[in-house]
Amino acid sequence: MSVEAKRSPAAYRLRRLIGNIGFGFSVLVLISPAILFFLWMLSLSFKNELDNTDWPPVFIPESPTLDNYREVFARNDFLRFAWNSIVVSFGATGIALLIGVPAGYGIAKMHAMRAAALILIARITPGLSYLIPLFLLFQWLGMTGSLTPIVITHLVITVPIVVWVMISFFEGLPPELEEAALVDGATIWQAFRYVAMPLARPGITVATILSFIFSWNNFIFAMVLAGRETRTLPVAVNNMLTFEQIAWGPLSAAALLVTAPVLILTLVAQKQIVAGLTAGGVKGA
């Protein structure tokens, strides 16, 4: 390459330019499925039924409409389901943080590899496999029909995420500061509460975001356990499909509303999510 550059700088520059254009084009190819999909989702949600079923497809509507969104809010108890989703996701994330952050600390301090391995196994087991025993248990306890069993089952997802992320964060903290606190007469609880936990705040943020997103996105637990009143958003939006096969506009509007909080969170907290997923993943094996 360098020999060639000496021979003819213009040709070298041209080759570099072509290379850069080719690279830019491949990046565009890589991200276009994501862009096009979400734009199409947006487009469907702002078009009336006529435009949505037109051929060739209408991409940018001449008269965009908010009717689809109005319909979603008007008809489907959407706000109730949204509230259910909020209660479940915040509840499951909150409980997981409360018990998972100390547990991550304990496991990191004790180098309890077996406990860590158990958490890992819990993370890779399919969610569906927990459903049968828990379903039988809730039925036996007469707990079906409220949000409590859904929150409890979501702990299956959130607790392993929080514990796993926190183990890797606490392991990465320098032990000197806590040791200094212990030498100064702090109890280990105080060392955890006032020294380690403030230092691990970025880790707690990561754990919170990931656990919230995966709980929000979860479908199967609520689908089996929820009654008519206790559906979460993914279940509610799936039911819309079953009953209104071809109403594309409202369906897209609802789908967009369901996933919007997560997408916005991803845009805002992209750095933390990437850190959490890669740390968790790389540490995960």
Partner: peptide, 19 residues
Amino acid sequence: ARTIFILPMMATPVAVALV
């Protein structure tokens, strides 16, 4: 570009599947 690229991973699977 990277943020856009990772969006599908975080999107709610059910919502995405419907579209």
